[in-house]
Design a protein around this nucleic acid. Structure first.
Lengths: 339, 339
DNA sequence: CTGAAAGCGCTTACAG
DNA sequence: CTGAAAGCGCTTACAG
């Protein structure tokens, strides 16, 4: 089966390729009759323009690249969802790459997307990324770029984030308001900004409400997952700390802790209130249902693509666009794990 | 900043574009000296071939399309993970589209991918897809196609699946082996093949082990989610059925049921044993931890891309490849919700 | 070993 | 209103 081309249609109708091309794109300087004939023939032959040729001519591929640390992750898959929904509506396709939290891989993927000449790039940084030269390279090439969630202040581009510090502050305050006096924190690794910010929010909330911050009550959950939450909870108990509240950096870590508490006959929330972070579907399915902070992944994806779209349009029209930073709202979801 | 092209390099070195192109691709009929000079200059200028032009010439984009019903879904995001990992290793990028379980959208997306001229397409069908004309259209155009998980027998292409019927049979048998005599089933909608297959496996297991199949014990969970599981469990209780085992079509539905049982002081597994399906991370985080069937999503993704890759290579070499069907192993994961 | 030329399939400025 | 021509940036069969 031969591919149908403009040439094919032109020959069939005995007119020029130019006219066919113009007719299909509804140029005003083509007669109604010709347009009708061309369109009919195109339809008959089931013609679709060769996108490779179109790309080459227009220097656009209507394709954007997305780099995220992990695909199998409730928050990030929600972001993906928001991005591809929005992108499709605007006629864009999305290429997804996964850095697996590796700086090296992320850097390679950026170069790959550049060489593929995508129209724009969206990225959430790997935890291990410290140098941002590869991201500034994108900017140097004038390729539209938007960062979300895991961002760097050292890259001058538009960003979509939540206020981790404030959200963590509110989460901790929720525990304090419900009567907790001695609140532990399961934090993430030392490097990632959101791990730092959530920790700082926790600390600030204690201080603002007359509770003493005790570094001994802060445990590190390297991978912020269920097993980390379990281990940290076991350690907390082994260390003999008496607490009445726990703020965990993720719902998974909180779920791990709750399981341990139940095994040890520690009642949640009567003995210890537990707060998670993210509002994964997991949080409503465990017992007691987990109070948490809702992190709007889908919204973040949509917003990110929207900003990227604006930048791509500005580039096409040769306008300069000042980078903006959008901070999305989070909110406390009260369930049964807190009083 | 001007784009660097072959022409640029050729002019700088005072040789022809042809030679530059050949030198960069290590053609043997170019002198060592020339090659070295060209490569040095290309590196100096940070040259990357314009992929649009390369696509147009080679008629390949090194890009494949993936259509799935849902992105925010543990199983499917695992599949995505497997696919993009494998694809990247082979030098392919993956465009991801989400049909949202809509036949109309799925059809549109297929056409979109065709018009984008991706090198191959991978798809897991929407539940509402009954007509497969759009999929056969892909085959007609000789575009490599692989289906996985949600497949149709009416499309002659390679497929990667699990044996849903057998897996459900084993899950039900696990309940029977542990002493259950009266086992309910929360099934999915009536249409999707895997919903049918899991139901049939359940039924067969009962019959093979001398238990009578009672249609009254089968409840439908339209969206196979947590809330459906809750509702079905409430209905089951309201209907006054005395059961000692439950096999739910998904972990989420099982989790919903378990929550209801706990609320009603029905002990799991002492009063009712519960079996899920999929082995989402959720299943280890709830209490009691859920026994389930492990469904190898990552593996399925990897395998699917592998088959697609073979087909793409065969197409390039103008060979015909007989479609194959790979059935991946599932296994029972015993946790605390069964005896 | 090197290069002129054709061509992939489009788009668009320009002439008539 | 129509079309010849140039060109996007590459690849490759062919000639020398």
């Amino acid at each position: 089966m031969k591919e149908v081309t403009l040439k094919q249609i032109a020959e069939n109708l005995g007119i020029s390729i130019t006219t066919v091309s113009k007719a299909l794109k509804d140029y005003k300087d083509v007669s109604k009759a010709t347009k009708a004939a061309v369109k009919a023939e195109a339809k008959r032959l089931n013609f679709t323009p060769n996108s490779f040729a179109v790309n080459l001519r227009t220097k656009e591929s209507k394709t954007v690249g997305l780099i995220i640390p992990e695909v199998v992750h409730h928050f990030f898959s929600s972001v993906i969802n928001g991005i591809i929904d929005k992108a499709e509506k605007k006629g864009y396709l999305v290429i997804i790459l996964q850095s697996n939290e590796s700086y090296k891989l992320e850097k390679k993927q950026v170069e790959l997307l550049i060489s593929k000449r995508v129209d724009g790039i969206m990225i959430s940084m790997a935890n291990t990324t410290v140098d941002v030269g590869h991201l500034n390279h994108i900017r140097d090439l004038k390729i539209p770029l938007v960062m979300f969630d895991k961002i760097s202040k050292l890259v001058a581009c538009s960003k979509v984030i939540i206020n981790d510090r404030m959200a963590a502050y509110e989460a901790t305050k929720h525990l304090i308001d419900s009567g907790c006096k001695r609140i532990a924190h399961f934090r993430g690794a030392l490097l990632p900004q959101n791990s730092i910010d959530r920790f700082l929010g926790y600390k600030k909330a204690l201080e603002d409400h007359g509770l003493t911050f005790d570094p001994a009550l802060v445990y590190i959950c390297e991978n912020v997952d269920y097993d980390n939450g379990r281990s940290a909870a076991l350690q907390l108990i082994a260390d003999g700390h008496k607490i009445d509240g726990l703020f965990a950096i993720t719902d998974m870590a909180a779920a791990g802790a709750i399981t341990v508490f139940k095994e040890r006959n520690i009642n949640v929330p009567d003995d210890i209130s537990v707060m998670g972070f993210s509002n994964w579907f997991l949080s409503q399915a465990i017992t007691p249902a987990l109070s948490t902070v809702d992190q709007p992944g889908y919204e973040m994806g949509k917003k990110s693509f929207k900003l990227l779209y604006k930048e791509m349009r500005a580039k096409r029209e040769d306008r300069y666009l000042e980078p903006v930073i959008r901070v999305l709202e989070t909110k406390i979801i009260k369930r049964q794990s807190t009083k």
